[in-house]
Design a protein around this nucleic acid. Sequence first.
DNA 1: CGGGGAGGTGAGAGCGCTCTCTGAACCGCT
DNA 2: AGCGGTTCAGAGAGCGCTCTCACCTCCCCG
Lengths: 345, 345
Amino acid sequence: MRETAPRPTLEAVAARAGVSRATVSRVVNGGEGVREPLVSRVRKAVEELGYVPNQAARSLVTRRYDAVAVVIAEPETRVFADPFFALQLRGISRELTAHDTQLVLLLTEGREDHARVGRYLAGGHVDGALVFSLHLDDPLPGLIHGAGVPTVFGGRPGWADGAHSAVYVDSDNRGGAREAVTHLVGLGRRRIAHITGALDQTSAADRLDGFRDVMADADPRLIAEGDFTPAGGERAMRQLLRRCPDLDAVFAANDLSASGALRVLREHGRRVPEDVAVIGFDDMLPVAEQTDPPLTTVRQDIEEMGRLMARLLLRGRGDRAAEAGVAGGSAGVVLPTTLVRRASA
Amino acid sequence: MRETAPRPTLEAVAARAGVSRATVSRVVNGGEGVREPLVSRVRKAVEELGYVPNQAARSLVTRRYDAVAVVIAEPETRVFADPFFALQLRGISRELTAHDTQLVLLLTEGREDHARVGRYLAGGHVDGALVFSLHLDDPLPGLIHGAGVPTVFGGRPGWADGAHSAVYVDSDNRGGAREAVTHLVGLGRRRIAHITGALDQTSAADRLDGFRDVMADADPRLIAEGDFTPAGGERAMRQLLRRCPDLDAVFAANDLSASGALRVLREHGRRVPEDVAVIGFDDMLPVAEQTDPPLTTVRQDIEEMGRLMARLLLRGRGDRAAEAGVAGGSAGVVLPTTLVRRASA
DNA sequence: CGGGGAGGTGAGAGCGCTCTCTGAACCGCT
DNA sequence: AGCGGTTCAGAGAGCGCTCTCACCTCCCCG
């Protein structure tokens, strides 16, 4: 890539304004403690030269980057196909922008990517990291810890349950699932099936636990493994219909899988909710409201989760909270969920 | 945010390995011209200390950042809702990863955002920028030029037609539109309508021009303005049906608007393609294949566009090509389009 | 009218790295 | 054995900025 045209330096501005570097620096950083005639002379010089501080030089001394990394352990295809991330990113982005902080998006797909991300975080680019969509065997937390970068996780990490500490924001997956299944029971349903999410993620495991809390003695064949995608939902639904043709309700681990399930149910001539009641999770508006029939689902405020994560990180509460957590425990914030009743159940 | 634990420096590694800083630097950067015993001693020290070079310090002297900004002049909601960007980003991301370069995503929504992005680019964070979705009155190109950062545009910028130069990658919007409309004519359709995209973007304007190339004397009421979204497509379609109930074909500026148009046509009891033939643009698979009926559309290889943009930027061809372009002209790469026939026309 | 304090400004060190330049060591050659 | 040439290692400057500290000015009070 071409050498970019040489940009003016602090030195140049100082020379033009007839002051010292230090004074220019002061003005550029807020102008505290500089008297009037100088302030405007410096401002004028900055303007005329089109001076913009060199962030690398600044970071080198301040150790601040005014940037935060968002690490998502999923391939781009999923990240951009799943409205979940869009909403979360929106929340984060709003919060960061308000604090004049740049968002750097890092997607990791394979092994090498992990190493690259680790180097990136350790290499001094960002003040902190927001990490999503961790899978159980993920090496990322280790790398991040090694990088010594303050981190907030989206969703409870698998290992954050006693021995190690972690700051995270999660929603009440288990409670939400319980509420959904209880609702189905209240509708008089007895053969209630569950389509799980990707079980290597705690959110999926927690929702399954919630399901089991209510349906303790459920036929194990009523549980089919999905992966949070519509295609996974279709697969699981087919499996369920084959194994238990008499099922009368389905609780899917998220709206996307529920939408797949709905398609398959329609295909098989089952009416929703008359023959089979369906509940999703997330209340992802573009999905939940567009399905036929509109989806009853468990709402979590995803954008708020994102915003909260960013706030935790920025306020520096992140780490202090981690330290202050119950002895050796984790500092997690768990947001409540609510059941949204639409037509499907 | 917490002060991160002090990371080991080059100096520390040098001390541990018993060599000079310069030697460590050489090893870290490829190890050329350092003899064996030293190389492994340094490698060992790096390993033991968990040394990772400080990128800020490095950039300060090399003026390289190993990062490229992707600037999208749209709100997150659109970026994450429109598969177009997902595909383009995928192409870019692939190419950049292959060159060990980090992708930094910058979304700009309002005025202040523009200034922030300008500062970011000028402030020394990235080696270059890939810019998308420019609108005609956008101040971004000016800012970017001021920042002195090599840039490749996605889609022909409005001003890149003579006076100024710009490096861009675009697809043959006008030709593709011509082909689509010609196809409709070939089907015997006579009252062919057009739903435009956001006309402040050249892609939309070019597709409209292609439409006019074939339908030179078309009834102006057969042209309705959309904005590339499904909702815009619905609005435009309603308008068209009101104005020209006798229309027998619609060419929509992209698949998303076409999907909106299809919904409205169904609502009004028009059969597709029997009563009204419909053609879209983009061949966005998740959209075009899922519509009812599947959409005939103009394919452009979006992922390839992204990859090409990244390649142009990285090869440093970007600027040289700009300089070498026809005197004062633009250096654009225009990719071909192909008509994909499905059921809707 | 002089001394002390406050507030404003400048000089200079140093952040962690790269890169040039110098010097040392060692090769083969005469 | 002595010499030029080559290779490899180290010393040191400097990238653009911030920040501490010392200094200087000016004002207020005794």
